[in-house]
Design a protein around this nucleic acid. Sequence first.
DNA 1: TTTATACTCGAACAGGCGTTCTGTGTCAAG
DNA 2: CTTGACACAGAACGCCTGTTCGAGTATAAA
Lengths: 233, 233
Amino acid sequence: MMMVRKRSEDLSPKHIRILEFLAKYQEEYDRPPSIREICAKVGISSTSVVNYDLDQLERRGFIIRDDRVSRGLRLTEKIKEVVQVVGDLLHIPIVGQIAAGLPLPDLQPGVAYITENEAHAVDIARSLLPAKEKGNDLYALEVKGDSMIDAMINDGDIVVMKPAVEARNGEMVAVWLPDKNEATLKYFYKEKDGYTLRPANPSMKPIHIAKNRQLEIKGKVVMVIRKMDTMKL
Amino acid sequence: MMMVRKRSEDLSPKHIRILEFLAKYQEEYDRPPSIREICAKVGISSTSVVNYDLDQLERRGFIIRDDRVSRGLRLTEKIKEVVQVVGDLLHIPIVGQIAAGLPLPDLQPGVAYITENEAHAVDIARSLLPAKEKGNDLYALEVKGDSMIDAMINDGDIVVMKPAVEARNGEMVAVWLPDKNEATLKYFYKEKDGYTLRPANPSMKPIHIAKNRQLEIKGKVVMVIRKMDTMKL
DNA sequence: TTTATACTCGAACAGGCGTTCTGTGTCAAG
DNA sequence: CTTGACACAGAACGCCTGTTCGAGTATAAA
């Protein structure tokens, strides 16, 4: 009969703690810890157990071990799926697309999301974001179609967003208009009789939303990135 | 009498070779080499000599050594003065502004420029650029005014550019039109009777440039970055 | 020459290090 | 129950590694 035990791809809490320590140590010292340092900090009493666990982590693709080399382990990209690596780079998952007819993903503020497919992510330098921003809950959307053109945003652009359900005046937000079945990016202004959504392009007309009409704020726009397809050859 | 010997801040060719090897090894393995690995690769026959040299490099601020720790040395920022460190981040200087009335800076392709004021620069993740792009000669311009609005580019946006004096069809270029005294960003198309410059916004009309009119291509647009002023408080 | 400093070399030491082996205990399937 | 896979502990082995020491060479100042 088939084994119904723990699947070999799973990670135990101890594995997570080891990966977290590896990332933290690497970040601080620019080198991996020794096995005995892992013992001490993760709370494992034998080097052989750490060796045992490291072999498992290697088999699962999180690290690469170099035989008989002190501190001979390297973190792979896959570790980003488990722990937030605090470096100069912020790893932001592209969780979906934004288009006129598509509903916007519903993400909770303050929660970090991870994508199964790591090809869909963008790395942003921390220096490009406000200093206060930790950025753990940022996510990105790929713009499909030309419906955001009056927000000065093109087909193919990447918008980096921060989860939010409300906004202050002057902030650019991603909103979902249920009665128009439309997602859009606009500057947000609250007024006494409702809301005004202003396009980034000042030559286009703002949209007024009466108080009784529905309006769902899905997040604030933090950054827009447009990659040109130059230099393909 | 004063010593006229080698000044203690100078770096011997051997020191340079060691620093180059340290940076290369660190880049490849995410850890520093051992002293004996330095011996072998740099061509020094005794570990004590390497130890001797590492102490000098530490005293001069290029590395930090951790006592009695295997591979216990860390590269400091100062190493960038000596060797080109290839990392995940690309440091792109903002060399000026781009606006309707301002001439565009004249930069040579293939030359790396550095700004004296390091506050004016953006860090871009290498993963956001095409794999082939080395990126040493990239520079950035800050957009001033709304004159680029038909290129879907806003006031305050950052455009990352690659120096170029010619372009292929479909590439977005920064051009200077001497007879109109204007800088602009447009998609470039060469035709038999001249050139056509198409705005990124398809609803705007393209500009046709006759063969006899002047047109100076200053560079290709690689990326556009728009930072929102959200989260200021 | 003498003296001082800088640099190099080889060897050895002591502890750090990855690795291996034996043994124990747990848990679920047969 | 027995069996086997899995997880953990402890000890030991032997190489790896940073460090230290004594000695030698070279250059330049006194």
